[in-house]
């Protein structure tokens, strides 16, 4: 059965070349085609490039957060050392209550029908490149769904949180007096917690629910497994995750731009930094 015609620039994709599985298509040249073939090994090289770019994006994001914390804190150096303490989770200031998420969403609030159904999740920005809802189901299968009330601090180091409903505010700590600068508002389809999970470093941020929120928790082990998995849905997930990192960096840069613009003389240090 003829599935599709290829035009110039098209790629004849053999499913077994991109993922594990048997070859179940035949490509027939109707003219005199000219091109090159990508075998599975080359595809792996290309995809490792995506992952490398993603890791660079995570490093860049971490750098942005550090620059914001440093630039807004008159004691600069003290902030950097404080951030290290934060990352080790050994020094929770009384200004930063570390409340856990509500244990049982059913008790916290009755969710509307389909609140985290696969069809709904498939409509979110992070899943827009997925082929169908079944692939989304493969990603979220077995993951814990959490509920957070508005204003609740989220304490889930070692796990990524995918916002399914509501919004989470991500802030870097500025100084040791409980000050904070919001660097991101993560709405539906956005992730919280990439620095600390994707690079195994200390988390430079704290998060709290800005709206009542429904969150899907992805433990570090699950994230790593997906990043190393060659299936189509895992690769879509990898691309979506790194795209979200880039989005977070962009949001952080807007904070920096506002800060610089609102400061008459360059007392923030942000303007002088090489960003």
């Amino acid at each position: 059965m003829r599935a599709l015609d290829l035009v110039q620039g098209g790629v004849a994709v053999e499913p077994s070349g991109l993922a594990e599985g048997r070859c179940d298509t035949v490509v027939t040249a109707l003219g005199e085609p000219c091109g090159c073939s990508l075998d599975r090994a080359l595809d792996a090289v290309l995809f490792s490039g995506v992952r490398r770019a993603g890791q660079l994006a995570v490093a860049r994001l971490r750098d942005r957060y550090a620059a914001i914390a440093e630039g807004l804190d008159p004691e600069g150096i003290a902030t950097r050392s404080h951030l290290r303490l934060v990352g080790q989770s050994v020094d929770r200031s009384t200004h930063w209550p570390a409340l856990g998420l509500a244990a049982d969403p059913a008790v916290a609030c009755a969710l509307p029908d389909g609140a985290v159904g696969v069809e709904y999740l498939a409509s979110l920005v992070c899943f827009r490149r997925f082929d169908d809802a079944a692939q989304v189901a493969q990603i979220v299968d077995g993951l814990a769904v959490r509920w957070a009330a508005r204003g609740e601090w989220l304490d889930r180091e070692g796990a990524l949180l995918l916002v399914a409903r509501g919004a989470v505010e991500v802030s870097v700590r500025v100084g040791g007096n409980g000050g904070a600068q919001r660097v991101r508002l993560a709405g539906p389809g956005r992730f919280v917690g990439h620095p600390g999970v994707l690079d195994d470093g200390p988390s430079p941020v704290v998060a709290r629910a800005r709206e009542r929120s429904v969150l899907i928790e992805l433990p570090r082990e699950r994230v790593n497994a997906l990043l190393n998995c060659p299936t189509a849905e895992a690769r879509h997930f990898t691309a979506a995750l790194y795209e979200d990192v880039a989005c977070a960096a962009q949001q952080a840069e807007r904070v920096m731009a506002r800060t610089v613009a609102s400061t008459p003389a360059d007392t923030t240090g942000l303007g002088a930094r090489t960003l």
Binding site: P112, G114, S123, L124, V125, R128, V163, R165, G166, A167, L185, G187, P188, G189, R210, E211, R212, S213
Partner: peptide
Amino acid sequence: YGWYPSDESFFGSER
């Protein structure tokens, strides 16, 4: 924010 309407409106589909 983040609680999209479930109808066919503009806000229901904007992501």
